[in-house]
Computed example of a mutant assay.
Amino acid sequence: MKTEQITQNQLILFLIIYFYSTLVGFASAHLIQLSQYDTVIVLIIGSIGACIYALFTIKLAKRRPTEFISHYGKEIFPYWIHVIFMVFYCFSFLHISAFILREYEDFFVQTYLPETPNWAIGIILGFVVAVTVRSGVVTVFRTAQGLFFLVILADIVITAFIGKELTWDRWMAFVTNHSWNNIYKGSFYTIPFFGEVVIIVFLFPYLAQKSKTLKSVIWAISMALFFIMLNMVFLLLLFGPNLASHSTYPMLEMVRYIRIADFIENLDPFLISIWSTTIYLKISIMFYLSVQILAHLFHLKDTRPLVFSLAAVMVALSLQMSGGTTSLTSFFTESWATYSYFIEGIPLLYLLVDTIKQTKMKTKGE
């Protein structure tokens, strides 16, 4: 099957932005609340968990490198079980994209456009996502490649100028203040963020130089970990764990501490450029996977006819979710991690069953 090609360099740059996006922007307060000064340890554990996920996921994908799991999965599980899993994935990816879109809508409306209805933000971003996805998955990765350096530059500028505002005496707390309970709770919450690397199994046929994929993913996880840790450490040094965990958007509050001479009041535009870009790319890939799986289930050769109709569903779902920011936050902090473990564990289940089947066939052949 002929597919478009995504280079390993594009994969690395995209995954860095992908991991960075919602973890720093929307999840930092809850992560700090759970982990306190153990946040650095928790992030390292989460990245190790991601490498393990990547190892097994790529091992599964390499067994049929030119085929999509939505096609070959029926060779591993009975057809009806495979279809149930794919329908679940289709809804899950659509739900995740709608959830992130709703978080972005709430952030923008509450912070900058209080008189603007959520649907206006949702429709604008949803339309941009739909146009991007209709152009193909390679467009998403090329966009990430082009925007990566702007995102990282903005992040470096923010962290560089906030340095003089930090309370450096708090450094000792990273050495002395440890709690096994905090590490456990924080790790349980963080591993699913990095565990989203399992989306590689759905993208594997698009990748060039497939043999280098695991190495590329590990590089991406390591570099993303560095940028995420840098932001989390600066938040803790500036606010401490209590104030940071009680801020809705602690990164925004950190940026507002920055003053450059007398002509730049703050660097909000830099932060907005980072969040808008990273969130747009994450929504795009999740939405694309939902469209792709649905097209495969209906045996369509082209995903484009489904894009705008499913984008309308995504925007509508984001507007109807829960009933408010409080309910969304409650789901995110109480149920999201367990829900994600189930989603991310399905490819490992495919690998396990496929390995058992291959072992039995090999035994019979001998």
Rank of each mutant, 00 (worst) to 15 (best):
F141A: 01
F141V: 06
R142E: 00
R142M: 00
R142Q: 02
R142K: 06
T143F: 12
G146D: 05
L147V: 09
F149I: 12
L150A: 10
V151S: 07
V151L: 07
V151F: 11
I152H: 01
L153S: 15
L153V: 15
L153R: 00
L153H: 13
A154C: 08
A154D: 03
D155E: 05
I156L: 10
I156F: 13
V157Q: 11
I158E: 06
A160P: 00
I162W: 05
G163I: 08
K164G: 03
L166N: 14
L166K: 10
T167A: 15
T167P: 05
W168M: 08
W168N: 10
D169S: 15
D169H: 14
R170N: 12
M172A: 07
F174C: 06
V175E: 03
T176A: 03
N177S: 14
H178L: 04
S179P: 15
W180A: 08
W180H: 07
W180I: 07
N181S: 12
I183D: 03
K185H: 09
G186P: 05
G186M: 03
S187Q: 08
F188I: 02
F188D: 00
F188V: 05
Y189W: 04
Y189F: 11
T190H: 03
I191G: 04
I191A: 06
P192K: 13
F193I: 09
